[in-house]
Design a protein around this nucleic acid. Sequence first.
RNA 1: GCGCUCGUAGCUCAACGGAUAGAGUACUUGUCUUCGGAACAAGGGGUUGGGGGUUCAAGUCCCUCCGAGCGCACCA
Length: 561
Amino acid sequence: MTLHDTVKKWLKDSLSVEADFVLEYPADVTHGDFATNVAMVMAKNEKINPRDLAEKYVGILQNNKIDEVSGVEMAGPGFINITISSKVFSSSIEKINKAGDTFGENKHYSGSRFLIEHTQPNPFKEFHIGHMMNNVIGESVSRLIENQGNEVIRASYHGDVGLHVAKAIWGIINLGVGTNVDVKTLGQAYSLGAKMYESDELAKAEIIDINKKVYDGSDDEINNLYKTGRQVSLDYFEKMYERLGNKFNFHFYESESAPIGKKIVEEFLDKGVFEKSEGAVIFPGEKYGLHTRVFLNSDGLPTYEAKEIGLMQIKREKCYPFNLSITVTANEQDAFFKVTEKSLEQVFPDLTGKVLHLSHGMLKLPSGKMSSRTGDVLTAEWIINSLKNGAKEKIKEPLMSDEERDMVSETVALAALKFSILRQAIGGDIVFDINKALSLEGDSGPYLQYATVRASAVLRKAREVVEISSEEPSGWQTTLLEKLLERFPSVIERSANEYAPHYLVTYLTNLASEFNSFYAREKIIDTENKSSAYRLAIVKAFVSVMTSGLHLLGISVPNRM
RNA sequence: GCGCUCGUAGCUCAACGGAUAGAGUACUUGUCUUCGGAACAAGGGGUUGGGGGUUCAAGUCCCUCCGAGCGCACCA
């Protein structure tokens, strides 16, 4: 149990309160280590003066104090501020140093299985910054949920059939590159095909024809181009996952979900879940306060919607039973998912409440939105490499080999990128200013890495000079750094429960900043000072918490930078 | 037109209905022959888009107006 939970339980038990109230870490340190609004909440229910009730509560609490608590007092309009005894924080330092990188993990397996689908790049198209953003969020949420004692199955889903594929193949044929394609030529081919589809009637007809042939496999040349192009894309995606630091348990494909989805929709058409309309098969979302969408088009081909039904069937076969199936996408798909989820509930009633659409904003440039249609696409690779070059110039270590320099700048670049994606609530759009990200100053991924690297350097240097001890020296004044370190498990818990990595980012930023102040203020290694051993224990705990916290964001820490 | 999301410092973002709305950046100034300056300390900068309401308490909830983004039948 975290300290936060302990204190909350104490409040509930000693005041015999059932209602929801908040126990928070006050922003202002003069308000104690915890503050609660319990008296104000209860005063409302019982229609009495909140300050009077708070006064009464403070009396009860003072008579029932637990070891952890050193002070209770009323403040302001009826808050109760609680201070924690200093030995709690020093024993927390000891606990952290014992647990190392596993501190904060919920080791009690909850028995829950989560299926998390994210990234979803489409073969024959670019792996662009939108996929990257989705990947970074999906991976961090996965790690947070996993950390809390749940089983996580990661899956990606690929649109390996459809008009975009036909456009790319048309482009391949007209560029004359044949099966000798790489990612770059595929990109050019798609862009050419997409452009011509819009502007040239003949090309459009040819592309539609290719699309049919991809589905029915009747043309050997096209089959061949399709097969090699698809594989080139998928191999490339593998490299990107590796570079971004994630592994998927499953890859699902629209070529698989399409026929399954079509079959299920036809079956439930007979049962009245779906309806025929204007030659197509639709789901009447209006019945549920949503809007109607097409599941099978008038040619009988499954749309994205029907494929989603087919995908769920595949997920059931491979991963059931799961407690929650999460799909991470950009918020432009919100309305689509509302309708699809409603239709899923009709088809699979047992999945009601077990499907969650986690939507995030779009990655935008200061100049506006990127568009694949105008060819204005920023690839993930391009942006990572740009950041990497910037990071390389910043490295001051003169003795670093070229190989290490390359590895370190890669790590720093990814940190800069992931930090700027995860630092804000996931629902909102991100305005990504490359120049600012390249400056690597202030609150940033590299800032967090740097603080950790410095702390590690201190520990290395101290090894020959001073012992480390978690025992609190006499007369020790508990520092804010120790107090922040103690909060780590509560922060992860909240981030995981709310699928909100930005709480963790905010926390780690504050923690790093507090460490940097501590570092500037105090001489840590000091053979003359008895407190030095304990200071080192704090530094060690800081390194552990930073390392595991950053890991949950998908960020790793170099040895030096 | 309908629906969803959003509007907080010059810029990029926080704030679990609570105390004096906070960070970074930019700007101004200081620390520095260091346990690693990708650092630290300090300063100015706000009618939380406008107006109404609910509440002991509203950036947060409700209504309304203004503005932005996304989505609304055979793309994904």
